[in-house]
């Protein structure tokens, strides 16, 4: 159910995490010859993949575990009946929220098949590209970033299957790195990432810095509520064993109020918020006012 999603979400989280960045950047990301930052048009070598693993070893043991688990299931990103099934099922609901908020904010025609034509969007923590590809089909110029090299590789291979999605620029990099390259986007989207970041406030600042003035930022995560504790931790980790014990640290979850506050400090005003609820009878997710477990927030960057 709600927590089922959580299992996968953490796998995308390594990207853009500030604390991890500090570890990763020192040994090899600072050396572009050893680890190429952009993988979009390059074949991959075993050398670079092993070097990135070496880089992650400096992170905590938990992150190691996540990385190992991720690597073992990365190839199934696009198997809609595989381990990422809950994410595939939830995806249309997240996109419905993104579509309606961005159409309204940027004055796009909601009846158009490609309403995001002309918008530059970055998908931070893109994973296998499950969100990036629909955004590209909706007309956006998409950049997908993820710190995990294997994700980027899978995303590239899959995006190449369709000419429409092959325009996506995938980079094995982080939000921080993008900032250094002075990149700006009309919309910055980071779904199911912030709960794995050591310093959410800094992370939000990076996202804000990537957003053009009056641009949009969309973040989704899990609430720190009794219900999320029951579903994401107790049920998913201890009763159902969907997740290894200790995958999620409940205390590091953010409540909607806290998210609004740290976004406000990062100069982003939250305009809209919605919850995702899962209906076990239909097996579908839908948007609702209930933000007690999974929720998504849309904010705009204030002009200065």
């Amino acid at each position: 159910m709600a927590s089922k999603l959580v299992r996968h979400s953490h796998l995308r989280a390594l990207s853009s995490s500030i604390s991890i960045n500090n570890h990763i950047r020192s040994p090899h990301f600072s050396n572009p010859n050893r680890a190429p930052l952009s993988f979009s048009y390059r074949p991959f070598s075993n050398a670079s993949s092993s070097s990135s693993t070496a880089g992650f070893q400096r992170a905590s043991s938990l992150k190691d575990l996540e990385l190992a688990k991720f690597a073992s299931i990365a190839e199934t990103w696009w198997d809609s009946e595989g381990p990422f099934k809950p994410l595939h099922v939830m995806n249309p609901t997240r996109l419905a929220f993104i579509r309606s908020t961005l159409c309204r904010h940027f004055g796009k025609d909601p009846n158009s098949a490609r309403p995001f034509e002309g918008l530059k969007i970055v998908d931070v923590g893109c994973g296998g590209g499950i969100l990036s590809e629909p955004l590209a089909r909706m007309g956006a110029t998409v950049t997908g970033v993820d710190a995990v090299e294997k994700n980027i590789k899978i995303a590239c291979i899959h995006a190449d299957l369709d000419p429409v999605t092959s325009t996506i620029e995938y980079c094995c990099t982080t939000a921080e790195k993008l900032l250094e390259e002075d990149r700006k986007f009309d919309a910055v989207i980071a779904l199911e990432v912030i709960e794995h970041v050591a310093n959410p406030a800094e992370f939000c600042k990076s996202l804000a810095a990537l957003t053009v003035p009056d641009g949009a930022t969309i973040i989704s995560t899990i609430n720190r509520s009794m219900r999320s504790y029951a579903t994401a931790i107790v049920a998913a980790e201890y009763l159902l064993h969907w997740l290894p014990k200790g995958t999620h640290e409940w205390s590091s979850f953010l409540t909607p109020e806290e998210l609004v506050l740290i976004l406000q400090r990062a100069n982003i005003t939250v305009r809209e918020m919605a919850g995702f609820v899962y209906n076990p009878l239909t097996g579908r997710w839908s948007l609702s006012d209930d933000i007690s477990v999974n929720f998504i927030a849309f904010g705009t960057k204030n002009c200065q």
Binding site: N91, P92, L95, A96, R99, A113, E133, P134, L135, A136, R137, M138, D162
Partner: peptide, 8 residues
Amino acid sequence: EGIAVGSD
């Protein structure tokens, strides 16, 4: 509905 949310 699928096209609205960018599905294949």
